[in-house]
Design a protein around this nucleic acid. Structure first.
Lengths: 237, 237
DNA sequence: TATCATCAAATCGTGTACAATCCAAGTCAG
DNA sequence: CTGACTTGGATTGTACACGATTTGATGATA
């Protein structure tokens, strides 16, 4: 494996086990989703099933099913008899997701504090060390490690539904954040907040950990939304 | 229209306008979803595409697409080369949904308090009057009115994503609640909490309204989960 | 005789090819 | 320039072929 950027984000153990579907369609689903999230498919672009089928080397039916899945997750929009279009991952869409994360993640974190084992804490510290070693140099690696970090916290939560929502949102945010650089201020803030979270978990202070995560998500959202605004302003202005 | 029980719950104005898909498939989607939620399709029952196609008078492709939609919403589970099964609407599933609602609905309500017009309040009071007139006699009517009541609050929220999540959850809960009767205690509690909410909206007290909704969802969840437990105990014991 | 393994046939999921329907844009007559 | 018609392209629904999985029976072994 290459030393950097080959970090593969796998569905965190036991997370989307229900997502294992028709072997072909699930791959197509991921392929198209990545194309949407990465921006290779432009916002509002038409998704012509025949074209996609040819490009991805399959026939139309698997494509249709993949598009229906994507519709369920909110990545594509359908119009009757006019097919699918790429939903724009715009400012509002990202803001909506962040707002919901701000509500859900603290609740998940609170529960984790009561359940965390020594192994969990060791794992958090291990990942945090890797994050700090990388120090945002490799953006993709950082993104993957960051997902890993939070996955440790949410992975075993009894509310699978909530964990799934988090996971879906996270995948959108991962793709979006990779389009923009971290400011220096934001970098040190991320490090600080992660360290603070670990401390609260260690001392078993659920409320503080929850509040910490709330701030973490909130500030992360602010950071990205500002970048998106700036980018859009630069583009249009 | 018949005087009772013919109450049709339509997707509250502008709510799932993105859901308008292939005219046929979306109907099939609703048909199958209702069969699952109402219990006509047993938990874990296999969903054989050919059977469904015949029963619903269509061919296999529309059924497949409908099943993929339902997969996205969490109503069916897929296994590779083994097809789809009905996800059991069990105690855990319902609890998960209630927990998430407890997080989201107060936030939506808080925003509504700052935005509510006189017309909104009048509408809330109108629906509340109908609820009290019906007084839980017609369960389906009550269920529909209850959805309407809360829809007034969430309908125009800027976070469409959150509103959609609420709406999807609500549809599950509507189907489940209709399977069980309201206890007398629960009836008066619902009336009281609705009235209290209206008062808080009128006086513009966002925090109190949010807290009120949090309690409302919480107690509603407790009520249903107890009924489900009792039912399961009676069945197995 | 009971239990288990093996194998075969049926069943159903999955992908392909095709026909029908619908929409939109472009064209031509008035 | 406007409105209806035509035509091309894409969605949507149907029929079918292939392959995997399940199931039931048959036979072997303890």
């Amino acid at each position: 494996m290459a030393s950097t950027s080959e970090f593969k984000i796998s569905p965190p153990a036991g997370m989307e086990d229900m997502d294992v579907s028709s072997q072909r369609a699930v791959t197509l689903y991921e392929a198209i989703r990545e194309d949407i999230l990465s921006g290779r498919l432009a916002p509002n672009e038409r998704l012509v099933v025949a074209d996609l089928a040819e490009r991805l080397g399959t026939s139309t039916n698997p494509i249709r099913e993949a598009l229906q899945m994507l519709r369920g997750e909110g990545y594509v929009m359908f119009s009757p008899n006019r097919g699918a279009r790429v939903r724009p991952i715009d400012h509002d869409f990202v803001r909506n997701i962040y707002e919901i994360s701000t509500l859900i993640e603290p609740a998940l974190t609170r529960w984790f504090v009561g359940m965390a084992t020594d192994a969990d804490i060791a794992e958090l510290e291990r990942i945090q060390r890797l994050i700090e070693e990388n120090n945002f140099v490799d953006a993709v690696l950082h993104s993957g490690l960051d997902v890993q970090f939070h996955t440790v916290v949410y992975q075993r939560h009894y509310n699978r539904h909530a964990a799934e929502i988090w996971w879906k949102h996270r995948q959108v945010l991962r793709a979006v954040t990779q389009r923009f650089p971290y400011t220096l201020a934001r970098r040190s803030q991320v490090i600080r907040e992660h360290r603070e979270l670990i401390e609260h978990v260690k001392s078993g202070e659920a409320d503080k950990a929850a509040a910490c995560i709330a701030r973490h998500v909130e500030s992360s959202g602010q950071h990205i939304l500002e970048q998106m605004r700036a980018f859009d302003a630069a583009r249009t202005g």
